[in-house]
C-alpha cells in the first residue's frame, strides 16, 4: 500500500474487520485509526465491530487452569509491586481517609449484602474546570446506596476537597470531603441517601473553589 496516500472510507472499510479483531499490523493500523479519529462514519463502524469482537470473547469456554495458577500469579504481582517496575505514578492509587466523619457506614468495600444483586451503576466522567478528564464518578444502588469517586489525575495543590451531589431540584448536598495531602489520586467512596441516587451532577470544590465536576445521565 502506498504510504503517502491518505486512507479513504473505502480503504478503511476493507480493513475494518482485521482492525476490530486486533489482527491489523503497523503501520497500516495507525493510519486506519488516524482516519477513524477524524471520520465519524468509520469511527462508529470500528467502535461497533470492536465491541462485537471483544464481547464475543465471553463465549470462549472456561477451563480450569493448573492448581498452582493463583499462587504463581500472586507471587508475580508481589514481585512486581516490590520491584522498580511498579505501576506508573499516575495509577498509584493512594486511598482515601476521606470519609472520616462522613455520612453513612457504607464504603466501596461494603458492597457485601447477602445474596446481593448486580449493582446498579451510573457512571460519569469527572472533568476538571480546565476541561480535561481526571477521573470517574459512580452512583451505586446495591446493596447500599453509595458514591464512588476515582481520581486518576490529581488536582495540583493542597486543600480540603469537598464532594457534593446535585439533586433533581437543583440543590447541592455535601456528601463528604478529603484532604489532598492524604489523597491525590485514588478511590474514595461514601454512603449516600437513597434519594441521591437520582443526582444529576457531582462537583468537587477545593477550599470553596470548584475544581471538577461530573454530569450523570
Amino acid at each position: 500500500m502506498n504510504v503517502d496516500r491518505p486512507i479513504d472510507c473505502e480503504t478503511f472499510d476493507a480493513h475494518a474487520e482485521e482492525l476490530a479483531l486486533g489482527q491489523q499490523n503497523e503501520p497500516l493500523r495507525g493510519r486506519l485509526l488516524a482516519h477513524a479519529a477524524l471520520c465519524p462514519r468509520c469511527h462508529s463502524l470500528i467502535d461497533g465491530l470492536g465491541m462485537v469482537a471483544d464481547r464475543l470473547l465471553l463465549v470462549a469456554p472456561q477451563i480450569e487452569p493448573p492448581a498452582d495458577f493463583e499462587s504463581r500469579a500472586l507471587a508475580r504481582l508481589g514481585a512486581q509491586a516490590a520491584g522498580p517496575t511498579h505501576r506508573p505514578v499516575g495509577f498509584r492509587w493512594l486511598v482515601g481517609a476521606a470519609a472520616v466523619g462522613a455520612v453513612a457506614a457504607a464504603s466501596l468495600f461494603l458492597v457485601l449484602a447477602p445474596g446481593d444483586q448486580p449493582a446498579t451503576i451510573t457512571t460519569a466522567a469527572i472533568v476538571s474546570t480546565a476541561g480535561s478528564e481526571v477521573g470517574s464518578a459512580q452512583l451505586i444502588a446495591e446493596p447500599v446506596p453509595h458514591l464512588v469517586v476515582t481520581i486518576a489525575a490529581p488536582h495540583p495543590g493542597p486543600g480540603i476537597r469537598t464532594c457534593e451531589l446535585r439533586r433533581a431540584d437543583g440543590t447541592w448536598e455535601e456528601v463528604g470531603w478529603w484532604d489532598a495531602a492524604d489523597i491525590a489520586t485514588g478511590v474514595w467512596a461514601v454512603g449516600i441517601d437513597p434519594d441521591l441516587l437520582d443526582a444529576t451532577a457531582m462537583r468537587i470544590t477545593s477550599d470553596g473553589d470548584a475544581i471538577a465536576s461530573a454530569t450523570f445521565g
Binding site: A97, L108, F109, V111, L112, Q138, I140, T150, V187
Partner: peptide, 21 residues
C-alpha cells in the same frame, strides 16, 4: 503512612469494585 479503604468481603464485590480494589 497513608490510608487504606477497609476491604471486607472482597469476594462479594462487583467485578468493577473488585478491580478497583
Amino acid at each position: 503512612g497513608s490510608y487504606i479503604v477497609v476491604m471486607r468481603h472482597v469476594d462479594r464485590l462487583s467485578d468493577e469494585a473488585l478491580l478497583g480494589a
